[in-house]
Simulated assay, not measured.
Amino acid sequence: MSKVLVVGASGMVGSELVNKLRAKGHEVVRATSKTQLQPDQVHVNLATGAGLEQAFQGIDKAFFLCPPGYTNQHELLGPLIDKAREKQLQKVVLMTAMGANAVEAAPLRQAEIRLERSGLRYNIIRPNWFMQNFNTFWLHGILQAGTVFLPVGDAKASFIDARDIAAVAAELLDSGRFDNQDFDLTGGESLTHAEAAELISQATGKQIRFQDITPQAMLDGLLQAGVPADYAEFLVMILGFLKQGAAERRTDAVERITGRAPIGFAQYARDYRAAWL
Rank of each mutant, 00 (worst) to 15 (best):
V92Q: 04
I81N: 03
P107S: 07
A102R: 15
W129I: 09
R85S: 05
L150D: 04
M98E: 07
K83V: 09
P127H: 07
Y122L: 10
L80S: 07
I81W: 00
Q132A: 03
Q110E: 09
A84K: 02
M95K: 10
N128S: 12
V93D: 02
A145P: 02
R121T: 14
A97V: 14
I124C: 08
A105I: 10
V93R: 01
P107E: 10
A106N: 11
E112H: 11
F149I: 09
I124H: 09
I81D: 01
V152P: 00
A106M: 13
W129A: 10
V103E: 12
H140W: 11
L150T: 12
T96C: 07
N101F: 15
A145M: 13
M98T: 13
N128W: 04
F149L: 13
L150K: 06
R121F: 02
I81K: 01
R126Y: 04
T96M: 07
N135P: 00
Q110N: 01
T147Q: 07
G141R: 04
N123E: 06
M98F: 11
Y122T: 05
L89P: 05
P107R: 03
F130W: 13
P151H: 09
Q144H: 13
G146V: 06
E86G: 01
A111G: 00
P127K: 08
F130V: 09
L143N: 14
V152S: 11
R117L: 07
E116H: 06
I81E: 02
E116T: 12
A102Q: 15
A102H: 14
F130D: 05
H140F: 02
R109Q: 14
A100D: 14
K83M: 13
F149C: 02
R85M: 10
M131R: 03
H140E: 13
K91M: 08
V103Q: 09
A100Y: 10
A97H: 12
V148E: 03
L94D: 00
I125T: 00
L120R: 00
F137I: 14
R121Y: 09
